[in-house]
């Protein structure tokens, strides 16, 4: 069943015992929207993703994906997830093909090996992400950007309607970061509802139409042009933040509170604001 909202969180509080790591989170993500979750480390961004995935135990409140209730232990269908690559065991003996196949585990038969259709789908996912011909390689042998795309391919091979990504641009160089974001914008254009956590405020301003500021709960949400203000960002990050705006292009540049003025001004033109969809 498809509803206008792909994801809804209503007054959610959740955690792994003890004090909840997130509380009072209410969020409604319309189908097809591309959303960035920003906030400081420990603000609960990953916990919100895990609540949507049915991994984070709920203390109170409710989570729905595609109109169906999600509870801890009952993961939603048709959701792809890209975890933080820092958490991956890179010495584990698996090839790129085997990792991507994991995303099709529900569609595969009982036998251990992949069918022709499985192989075709995996090859198509890898090709789409520019990883054609690398299927037989061990995951450790790839570059940081390629590794990130392998996990994106695993999330996409199951043809999800909702895609959740946890820090997909962490630990990659600026070019790779931009490549990944362009890739995600392309997927979003195909109608996949996408939610990603990130610390890259300027990349969010440049690429994403909707942003949610999080600090143990939702501080603010809306288009970057509306949400990226000094009061909101300072409240979100608990530190002074400067926001520079280009009067002509509407471009936004966010910097920490001290000492980045001249540099920020020079880079302003490269960060045009994106209209909300």
């Amino acid at each position: 069943m498809t509803t206008p909202f792909a994801i809804r969180l209503h007054d959610l509080a959740g955690g792994y015992g003890g004090a909840p790591v997130v509380r009072g989170v209410s969020l409604a993500v319309p189908a097809g929207r591309f959303v960035g979750l920003v906030g400081p480390s420990g603000a609960g961004k990953t916990s919100i993703l895990k609540a949507i995935l049915g991994v984070l135990p709920h203390v109170s409140g409710a989570v729905e994906v595609d109109g169906r209730a999600v509870t801890a232990g009952a993961p939603p269908a048709a959701v792809g997830y890209v975890p933080q690559t820092e958490l991956v065991d890179w010495s584990f003996p698996v090839t790129v093909d085997q990792v991507v196949l994991m995303g099709r585990i529900q569609a595969m038969g009982r036998l251990p090996w992949a069918s022709r259709e499985d192989k075709r789908e995996v090859a198509a996912a890898l090709e789409k992400l520019g990883l054609g011909g690398l299927g037989g390689r061990h995951i450790r042998e790839l570059s940081g950007g390629q590794q990130q795309r392998v996990f994106l391919a695993r999330a996409l091979v199951g043809k999800p309607r909702v895609l959740l990504l946890d820090e997909p641009t962490a630990s990659v160089d600026p070019k790779t970061r931009d490549d990944i974001l362009h890739l995600l914008v392309g997927l979003h254009d195909e109608g996949v509802t996408t939610v990603m956590t990130t610390h890259e405020l300027n990349a969010v301003a440049a690429h994403l139409p909707w942003v949610v500021c999080v600090n143990n709960g939702v501080v603010a949400q809306g288009p970057p042009a509306d949400v990226f203000t000094e009061p909101i960002l300072s409240r979100t990050f608990g530190a002074p933040m400067r926001v520079l705006r280009d009067a002509e292009t509407g471009g936004i540049l966010v910097a920490e509170g001290h000492g980045h003025g001249p540099v920020a001004t020079r880079r302003l033109a490269a960060v045009p604001a994106v209209a909300a969809d």
Binding site: L53, Y81, I105
Partner: peptide, 20 residues
């Protein structure tokens, strides 16, 4: 018979649960 499930849950148990 459980080759794929065992492989996935050994590689990443939390995510294996997410993927069903």
């Amino acid at each position: 018979l459980g080759y794929k499930q065992l492989l996935f849950s050994t590689f990443d148990p939390e995510l294996a649960r997410v993927y069903g």
